[in-house]
Simulated scan of single mutants.
Amino acid sequence: MRVHHLNCGTMTPIGGRLVDGRPGLFRHATLVCHCLLLETATGLVLIETGMGTPAVADPERWLGRRFLTLSKPVSRAEETAVSQIRALGLDPADVRDIVLTHLDLDHAGGLVDFPQARVHVYAAELAAYHAGNPRYRRAQLAHGPQWTPYEDAGDDWFGFSAVRELDGVPDVALIPLAGHTTGHAGVAVHTDTGWLLNAGDAYFYHSEIDEPARIPPGLKLFERLVQTVPEQRIENQQRLRELRLTSDVTIFAAHDLTDFERLSRPAHA
């Protein structure tokens, strides 16, 4: 298996170091949409999709005015998952499976670019969408994705409940990490060099699951504003902190620039 780390959507909210922790206050911060592309023996697997090509062509309809105002995404066709797959000399039509942490617009917006793919997601997340939760962008999912939901998380993964047998996707597991959303899950990938865990939005800053924890105040406020189940979010962050201390699992947050820079070169194999 070959693993590529892709940034499928840069966001530049105001706040500088209060948001991304880097020097300078009077500037725009930088956040990413950290996705994984897996080259496997049976085809390509995409972990998260970013915002998708319609976010470039028609951002207000696809992302909404509120998201555009607060997150200030950069409109770059070359950052879409489709474009990056082609740039690697691969065919987007070979993406057979997509595994998502959750259905927020910056994680699932690119599903429309891969209509041939099965979409693996934790069932509680899909149920929240079908129940009409307004946080999800209906336009992004109107094409009718090929959902493959999972309810049973009875397997064990480093002490976490897990779905270890995804249909047709070996070496990938869903790790329920509710808090940000009710059905939020991490996506674990077993590579030749060990386990990678895309923790999605279970936390937002690379040192938030360090001991002691540290997160810029603006990002901490945002994290609280968008959470769904606060108690579970805090509990799962502590469990991730313990996992980092007691294992060799490589954990990363979906929007943290430092994590992305650390892992994007060289690619894991």
Rank of each mutant, 00 (worst) to 15 (best):
V3D: 01
H5G: 06
C8Y: 06
T10F: 04
T12F: 09
P13H: 00
G15D: 05
R17C: 15
D20A: 02
P23Y: 05
H28R: 15
H28E: 10
H28A: 14
A29S: 11
L37E: 06
L38D: 05
L38E: 03
G43S: 15
G43Y: 09
G43C: 13
L44A: 10
L44Y: 07
L44N: 10
V45F: 10
E48N: 15
T49A: 07
G52C: 06
T53W: 10
A57L: 15
D58V: 13
P59C: 07
P59R: 04
E60N: 12
E60Y: 14
W62E: 04
G64K: 10
R65T: 14
F67W: 08
L68H: 04
R76E: 14
E79P: 04
A81K: 06
S83E: 12
S83K: 13
Q84F: 01
I85S: 01
A87R: 08
G89T: 07
L90C: 10
A93V: 14
A93T: 10
A93Y: 09
D94I: 15
L100H: 06
T101D: 03
H102N: 14
H102E: 12
D104V: 02
L105S: 12
D106M: 11
H107C: 13
H107I: 13
G110P: 01
F114R: 05
P115E: 13
H120Y: 02
Y122V: 00
A123Y: 04
A127E: 12
Y129E: 00
A131T: 09
G132R: 05
R135Y: 07
R137E: 05
L141A: 02
L141D: 09
H143I: 01
P145Y: 07
Q146K: 14
E151A: 15
D152H: 11
D156M: 09
G159C: 04
S161D: 15
A162R: 02
V169A: 10
V169N: 09
P170E: 12
A173I: 04
G179M: 00
G179A: 03
H180P: 03
H180E: 06
T182G: 15
T182E: 15
G183K: 01
V189M: 03
H190E: 14
W195L: 07
L196H: 01
G200S: 05
A202H: 00
Y203R: 01
S207P: 04
E211W: 04
P212V: 03
I215N: 01
P216T: 00
P217E: 02
Q227R: 13
T228C: 09
P230I: 09
R233D: 10
I234M: 04
E235V: 11
R241F: 03
R244P: 03
L245A: 15
S247P: 05
D248K: 14
V249P: 02
F252A: 03
H255Y: 00
T258W: 06
E261C: 02
E261Q: 15
R262N: 10
S264A: 15
A269I: 15
